[in-house]
């Protein structure tokens, strides 16, 4: 095993100091579901590991009247099992329940998954559909980035060296809102061959006042399906099928491997966009 120094800071401030001191030599450890396998396979060999699991305050999930806050170190299970989330924003626990298996959900973290930005991870789709804001601590203080600006490319995010994702903030959806997450699991890993999160708010007439659709597993990074959203705003459930046909508009490069071709992933994106939107509208009504 390649030796490494292990640090377990208790405060965000000391974590930040360590991250800045060690720079590229350091890897930040959250739930360990991506970093530890990489180290075991010798694909990653950091000389310093900074374990955030002891940092106070990063695990909390709170659901206020206006804002839902998810600490970056909150486990998937913490979101899945939160008492208030099913009524405030059901898309969050529904997505959490689709991740891996019970062991993974008990250990893996929301922030870890988002910062890792696996192209087939579930959270990015949902964070996009919920217009989540990511709070990031850095050498120059705090900044917030919208989910739609965060996922850049395959395993690449807007996170800069020396920065740590600390919290996810989501506005509690308005009355008459509904969400749904639909995915096909890659049969071995359980990651999404395609996963679509949809969140809608209906107007008094039952048409879509707002629509947001996030797609994962299909392209090098999760993306917002703006063409779908544009086609559906102001429309009702009858327009879902036509709108969903635009689920991959603008995607230039598709993920492709022995589990699924790019064409099939694109097809699944359209099918699941339709299913997720139909369910979301149904739930909003």
């Amino acid at each position: 095993m390649t030796p490494f120094d292990y640090h377990a800071p208790k405060t965000l401030r000391s974590a930040m100091r360590l991250v800045q001191a060690f720079g590229d030599d350091a890897k930040v450890l959250a739930g360990g579901h991506s970093l530890i396998p990489s180290m075991k396979l010798r694909l990653a060999a950091p000389s310093v590991v900074i374990d955030l699991s002891g940092v106070a305050g990063l695990k909390r999930v709170t659901a206020g009247n206006e804002t839902i806050s998810i600490g970056a170190l909150a486990t998937h299970y913490a979101v899945e099992s939160h008492r208030l989330l099913p009524s405030k924003c059901s898309l969050l626990p529904e997505t959490a329940a689709e991740i891996g298996d019970a062991q993974v959900r008990n250990r893996g973290t929301v922030g870890g998954s988002i910062a890792h930005a696996d192209p087939a991870a579930d959270w990015p789709a949902t964070m996009l559909a919920l217009d989540a804001q990511f709070d990031i601590a850095g050498p120059d203080g705090e900044r917030a980035v919208a989910a739609s600006d965060f996922f850049v490319d395959l395993f690449i995010t807007d996170l800069q060296p020396g920065e740590i994702l600390t919290q996810i903030r989501i506005a509690v959806p308005a009355e008459c809102s509904g969400g749904a997450y639909v995915k096909m699991r890659q049969s071995a890993s359980g990651f999404a061959l395609a996963g679509v999160a949809a969140q809608v708010t209906l107007d008094d007439a039952g048409n879509c006042a707002s629509v947001a659709v996030g797609v994962t597993g299909v392209a090098p990074a999760a993306y917002r399906a703006h063409a779908v959203e544009d086609a559906l705003v102001g429309q009702g459930i009858d327009a879902v099928a036509d709108a969903a046909a635009h689920a991959t508009d603008g995607v230039e490069e598709f993920q492709e491997d022995h589990h699924a071709s790019g064409d099939y992933r694109a097809h699944l994106a359209r099918v699941f966009t339709q299913r997720a939107l139909s369910q979301a509208i149904d739930r909003a009504a």
Partner: peptide, 19 residues
């Protein structure tokens, strides 16, 4: 169990070999 043209096993873990 899939080997590619160069004889590498591309289903060599439970991430890619589906039980």
């Amino acid at each position: 169990a899939i080997y590619d043209e160069s004889g590498q096993m591309i289903t060599g873990s439970f991430m890619d070999y589906a039980l």
